[in-house]
């Protein structure tokens, strides 16, 4: 009898468990891969500075309190803007939808917040939003963003997943050195809109404080 046999053979028993538990994943997830990976029209991958900012977002784990997923309800579209589409996320590795809104959604924060607002807010949230329970992130004004890692990430996703970065993105140190001025230039544009002297000086020296990269990333969320 089949069931007798299954109960008595630990190996086939384990194989049985594996089949039963893996089939949901196989049928649910795998077939949609190609479809969910189609970008919306005109979607551009993030620049190296924005990627570095995304890594600051990951490092300080903003996802604990902020979502990036606007649900299709009037109350949400009124508050945050158009509801989110699958094709907007196709270059997000990892996805950063979050699961908790201790603070507001950020998926379109670039539409209604500016560089100087973020600068003041990251320095002292309750001063900008009275009653806010968000901690201040003053260390982001002194810590430096890791733009080299962000560049390596761009090259990796270009090679592995055909993310449309230009032909100049190559995994060599020389290519990185050639690209670096572009990153600094973008950082300078952000820093020009900020008032903090130390930030301006750091960027002029060729360094990118974390907060500059983070703001570049937040501004790109539209």
């Amino acid at each position: 009898m089949f069931f007798h046999w299954l109960e008595k053979n630990p190996f086939f028993f384990a194989a049985g468990i594996s089949i039963v538990i893996s089939f949901a994943g196989l049928l649910e997830i795998v077939p949609n891969f190609a479809e969910a990976a189609r970008p919306v029209v005109d979607l551009k991958p993030r620049t190296v500075l924005q990627l570095a900012g995304k890594n600051v977002y990951k490092k300080d784990n903003c996802i604990s309190c902020h979502s990036q997923m606007i649900r299709p309800f009037k109350s949400e579209t009124d508050r945050y803007g158009a509801y989110s589409l699958s094709g907007e996320y196709v270059y997000d590795r990892p996805f950063l939808w979050g699961s908790k809104r201790t603070g507001p959604d950020l998926h379109r924060v670039g539409n209604y917040r500016t560089t100087d607002w973020h600068e003041n807010h990251m320095w002292d949230p309750p001063a900008i939003v009275p009653g806010s329970i968000m901690p201040a992130y003053k260390h982001q004004f002194t810590n430096l963003a890791d733009i080299e890692t962000a560049y390596a990430e761009a090259v990796t996703v270009k090679n592995a997943f055909n993310t449309p970065y230009g032909p100049e993105f190559k995994g060599t140190r020389a290519a990185w050195e050639a690209h670096k001025p572009k990153v600094l230039e973008e950082a300078k544009r952000i820093a020009d809109d900020m008032k903090n002297k130390d930030i301006k000086e750091a960027v002029a020296r060729g360094e990118v404080p974390e907060v500059v990269a983070l703001i570049a990333y937040l501004n790109s969320l539209k």
Partner: peptide, 26 residues
């Protein structure tokens, strides 16, 4: 990413094989 390039950036950094909605599902 360190091993996918010529040793650029941080050695512990990696990038997910899945993106966006797929990543969310997995």
């Amino acid at each position: 990413t360190y091993f996918a390039t010529e040793g650029l950036g941080s050695i512990v950094h990696s990038v997910s094989m899945y993106s966006g909605t797929n990543d969310a599902l997995v």
